[in-house]
């Protein structure tokens, strides 16, 4: 027996709608943008004290543009907050200050160093140890200090396995903890924003974007980025298969050799745990071509702190990490 085609249609839609469909369709990037704007407006409307978290990287650049799209010609309904680990790429700080001035919005900075000085967290003993983990305490302290009840961030579900299941409005208990087993079901675009005092919600407007979407959006919007995203030469050394920059806080240990290499960054975080990739991509188009062809995931290539175990991210998120 030969089956003609396994398609059958029980109910034909009106032809009028079909012919109009091509005209009324958005590219995937425009659809993702519309969704992100919708999420930002929901967060702003539902929470009395939201804040936008700024990391210095490309995701922050995208979030700031999306906030302009959501709220201009009005002002942003939230301040922008940077948790400064002290181990910054100077280019990221320069970018931050440039953008904030252009936008005319309010910036709050809270320092991991202050948390260390006040004895809230202990400085790790090993040389060049990452302060990524310490950020959590500084962030939660700042959330309590300003009584923020929603923190918008640039995390994406494609970054990591545990994140693939995280909600767009992601509930945090009074200790800032995420419980993956007790997540609220999230249906349609109906985000549940109800919380008790002391609890808060992390809001992720670009949950559904991939790394490539972010780059394509940077190109489409011609967004300004810290220069270290583009290929440049700098002294680096190799540790556990990754290229780390030689700098004030990071020196090669015994047996590690510094050398000069042409590199760029795929993420910008704490200098001590953000690795560079070898690259000659000097323009956005070259980066997009490289990312599209890339065979190593963004986190695998550049985040030293995720390498410990495949559950590393899940563990940190439970504690209240970004």
């Amino acid at each position: 027996m030969v089956l003609d085609s396994a398609i059958l249609t029980l109910d034909e839609r009106p032809p009028r709608q079909r012919s109009a469909s091509a005209r009324y369709s958005l590219t995937h990037l425009r659809a993702l943008e519309a969704e992100a704007i919708f999420i930002m407006r929901e967060a702003a409307a539902e929470f009395e004290r939201p804040v936008l978290l700024f990391s210095g990287g490309k995701d922050s650049a995208v979030l700031l543009r999306l906030a302009e799209k959501a709220f201009r010609p009005g002002k942003f309904p939230f301040p922008i907050m940077h948790i400064d680990t002290g181990h910054n790429f100077p280019e990221a700080i320069a970018f931050r200050d440039r953008r904030i001035t252009e936008l005319g919005e309010r910036l709050i900075v809270r320092y991991v160093q202050e948390s260390i000085d006040r004895g809230r967290v202990a400085q790790p003993k090993t040389p060049g140890a990452s302060r990524n983990r310490l950020q959590t305490t500084t962030l939660l302290d700042a959330i309590a200090e300003f009584k923020f009840n929603a923190a918008l961030g640039g995390a994406r579900r494609d970054e990591e396995k545990a994140r693939a299941k995280e909600r767009v409005f992601s509930f945090r208990d009074e200790f800032g903890q995420w419980d993956p087993k007790r997540q609220r079901p999230e249906l349609w675009g109906l985000y549940n924003a109800r919380i008790h005092p002391g609890e808060h919600v992390r809001v992720f407007p670009i949950s559904n974007w991939t790394e490539l979407d972010v780059w394509e959006y940077v190109a489409q919007e011609r967004l300004d980025l810290p220069s270290i995203y583009y290929a440049h030469r700098r002294p680096v050394f190799r540790r556990e298969g990754m290229l780390l920059a030689v700098g004030e806080y990071m020196q090669p240990l015994d047996g590690e050799v510094a050398f000069e290499e042409q590199v760029r960054y795929r993420t910008v975080g704490d200098m001590t745990c953000t690795a560079a990739v070898r690259s000659s991509a000097r323009t956005i188009d070259e980066i997009i071509a490289e990312v599209a062809a890339s065979r190593i995931s963004e986190r695998g290539a550049t985040r030293a702190d995720d390498r410990f175990s495949s559950a590393a991210m899940e563990d940190r998120k439970r504690e209240g990490y970004f």
Binding site: E42, A45, P73
Partner: peptide, 29 residues
């Protein structure tokens, strides 16, 4: 073809947020 699934007949816009800039150049916006 999925764009055809969305209703293009009944216009609806739930208002999420009212933009009132209170700035000189957009005083009455």
């Amino acid at each position: 073809p999925v764009a055809a699934d969305r209703s293009l007949v009944d216009a609806r816009l739930p208002v999420q947020w009212v933009i009132r800039p209170h700035r000189n150049e957009h005083r009455d916006y």
